[in-house]
């Protein structure tokens, strides 16, 4: 079995099932009436937590590949990103439907007046073009360079996601600070490599 076959027939299906596990767990808790005293709050928090986690996991792929030289992991990145989008969709739907029950005036007021919601909705909307352009056909159509530029938006999305969390907690900020520290580390690698790459190039070279 070649490495490519191994990725396609084993790694990807296993990862797919693993990525679905948090959702399966939530559905199970729902079916068995185990979502606690405030089920809507539980679903909203849970899907939000997993959106942030999947964003961070997806952002780990590139540093992992550069640090370990294990290049095949790049083939798993799209799936991780799309799962971040899936959990973001569930989180968004849980807010619009379960939390606000389609009270559109209240939703619009929230988005306009409440910075943590503004930031959360913005980061969700920014995820949509990335999900839409995640196919091979789209990569070809956009061209690798432009596609990559577009997908660097995920840095902004993750930063907005952490700010969204930070601004919504009432007093104990330790959880969002932990997410922020991990994100800073992941983006720090990229910044470091970017700056080092630049300093190695002769001035004025295009590149």
């Amino acid at each position: 079995m070649t490495q490519i076959q191994w990725i396609r027939w084993i790694a990807k299906p296993v990862l797919f099932v693993l990525c679905l596990a948090p959702l399966a767990w939530l559905v199970w808790d729902g079916v068995t009436n185990n979502l606690g005293a405030n089920p809507v709050e539980t679903v909203r928090r849970y899907t939000g937590d997993w959106t942030l986690r999947f964003l961070l996991i997806a952002l780990t792929v590139t540093p992992l590949r550069r640090l370990t030289g294990w290049h095949v992991v790049i083939r798993l990145r799209r799936m991780l990103g799309l799962f971040a989008f899936l959990y973001a969709c569930l989180h968004f739907v849980s807010y619009i439907w379960l939390d606000q029950f389609f009270m559109w005036d209240a939703i619009i007021e929230d988005i306009l007046d409440r910075p943590y919601i503004t930031v959360g909705v913005a980061s969700f909307l920014l995820l949509i073009p990335l999900a839409v352009t995640s196919t091979n056909g789209m990569v070809r159509r956009l061209g690798g360079r432009r596609w990559q530029r577009l997908h660097q938006l995920v840095y902004v999305i993750a930063v907005l996601g952490v700010i969204h969390f930070l601004w919504l907690v009432k007093s104990d900020i330790s959880e969002p600070v932990i997410y922020g520290a991990i994100l800073a580390l992941l983006l720090g690698f990229r910044l470091f490599w970017h700056l080092r790459g630049r300093s190695r190039q002769p001035a004025g070279a295009s590149g």
């Binding site: 979502l35 809507v40 709050e41 379960l98 009270m103 209240a106 007021e109 929230d110």
Partner: peptide
């Protein structure tokens, strides 16, 4: 009078409202 970060106009009754009931 809303809390700056959420509306106070509605509430969720613990234990009575299920996942799909409006506030």
């Amino acid at each position: 009078v809303d809390h700056p970060r959420w509306s106070q106009s509605h509430e969720r009754r613990i234990g009575e409202d299920n996942l799909f009931s409006p506030k």
